[in-house]
C-alpha cells in the first residue's frame, strides 16, 4: 500500500509536535468518553428506573440507587409479566414482526433478483418508480388503507397490520437486495443458464445462498423496523391485536403515576431489539450503508 511507502518519507516530527499530539489525543479521548457517557445515561437511567418500586420512583430519582442500592427490585417486571394485556401484546408484536420479516425478505428477494439479472421491458422505469417509492412517507396509506381494510373486514386485525408493513417495507427491500444481487459475478449465473437451469432454480440455488449476508442485513433491518413501529399499529390494531408499543403508549397519560409500567414496559420492548442489535449489528450497518449509498 502506498501509505507505508509514504510514512518512510514523512519528515520527523519535532518534540514540540509530539507533545502536542500526545495532549491532542488525550483531549480527544476525554471528549469522546464524555460523549459516550452522555449517550449511555438515558438507557441506563431507564433500566435502573425499571428496577425501582413505584414508591421510590415518584419521590426520588433513579441515581439514588448509587447510594441506596437496596431499593432495587424485580417487582415491576413481575407485575408486567403477570399482566395479560402486556404479555398478550408482546406476543402480538412477535406474531406481527416475524411474518412481516419473512414476507418482505421473500417478496423483496424475488423482485430484487428480477431487477438485477433479468431483462424485461420497462425495467429501468420500474426501478426508478421503486426509488421514488422509497421516500414516500408511511402516512400516505393511513386513510385509504383504513377504509379499504374496513371494507374487507380486516381493520383492527393483526393481518391488516402485517399487510401494511409488508407493503411499506418493500421499496427498501427490493432496492437493497437488487443492489446486493448485482454484485454476484455474472459468470456464475450465465454458466447456470447455459446448463439449462430455470430462473427459479438459479434464484434458489445460486442467488439466495450467495446473497445470504445481504438477506440477513435486510431481515435484521425489517425486523427492528416492524418491532419498533407504533404509528401503523396505533391505527390498524385494536385492544386484542395491539403490539407492545401501543399497549405501553396507552399508559402515557399519567406519566408519573405509571412510571413503573412505562419504564419496565419500555425496557421490555427494547430487550429483543437490543439483543438483535448487539448480535447482528454488522448486518444492520450493512443494510443502512447499501440501502442509501446507491
Amino acid at each position: 500500500m502506498t501509505v507505508s511507502d509514504l510514512t518512510v518519507v514523512r519528515r520527523k516530527r519535532t518534540p514540540a509536535e509530539r507533545v502536542l499530539a500526545f495532549f491532542g489525543r488525550g483531549i480527544v479521548n476525554v471528549l469522546l468518553i464524555i460523549v459516550a457517557v452522555f449517550w449511555l445515561v438515558p438507557t441506563v437511567g431507564l433500566f435502573i428506573s425499571s428496577l425501582r418500586p413505584i414508591g421510590e420512583s415518584t419521590s426520588s430519582g433513579w441515581w439514588t440507587v448509587f447510594t441506596a442500592p437496596a431499593q432495587l427490585t424485580l417487582e415491576n417486571y413481575a407485575n408486567l409479566l403477570s399482566n395479560p394485556t402486556i404479555t398478550g401484546s408482546f406476543w402480538n408484536t412477535v406474531v406481527i414482526t416475524v411474518p412481516v420479516t419473512v414476507a418482505v425478505v421473500v417478496i423483496g428477494a424475488l423482485a430484487g433478483y428480477a431487477f438485477a439479472w433479468m431483462d424485461f421491458p420497462g425495467r429501468d422505469w420500474l426501478l426508478i418508480a421503486i426509488i421514488v417509492l422509497l421516500a414516500v412517507p408511511l402516512q400516505v396509506g393511513l386513510i385509504p388503507i383504513a377504509r379499504m381494510f374496513g371494507a374487507i373486514g380486516i381493520f383492527g386485525s393483526i393481518i391488516g397490520v402485517i399487510l401494511y408493513h409488508i407493503a411499506f417495507g418493500l421499496p427498501f427491500a427490493v432496492f437493497l437486495l437488487r443492489n446486493f444481487f448485482t454484485q454476484i459475478p455474472g459468470e456464475l449465473l450465465e454458466a447456470a443458464r447455459i446448463d439449462g437451469a430455470s430462473e427459479f432454480r438459479i434464484f434458489t440455488r445460486i442467488v439466495l445462498p450467495l446473497g445470504g449476508p445481504a438477506i440477513a442485513s435486510l431481515a435484521i433491518f425489517q425486523f427492528l423496523w416492524t418491532w419498533n413501529d407504533m404509528l401503523v399499529a396505533l391505527i390498524f390494531s385494536n385492544s386484542e391485536s395491539q403490539p407492545l408499543t401501543v399497549a405501553i403508549q396507552s399508559q402515557l397519560r399519567q406519566f408519573g403515576a405509571n412510571i413503573d409500567v412505562l419504564s419496565s414496559g419500555a425496557f421490555l420492548s427494547m430487550l429483543v431489539p437490543l439483543v438483535v442489535f448487539f448480535a447482528f449489528q454488522r448486518y444492520f450497518v450493512q443494510a443502512l450503508l447499501a440501502g442509501s449509498q446507491k
Binding site: 438515558p42 431507564l46 427492528l224
Partner: peptide, 23 residues
C-alpha cells in the same frame, strides 16, 4: 464508542420518548 452511540438506532422511538420524558 460506535456501538454506544449507534445503539439508540435499534430501539423504538416510543422507548426513546419514555426515556427523554423521564429525563
Amino acid at each position: 464508542f460506535k456501538l454506544i452511540v449507534f445503539m439508540p438506532m435499534a430501539i423504538s422511538m416510543l422507548a426513546a420518548g419514555v426515556i427523554f420524558r423521564g429525563m
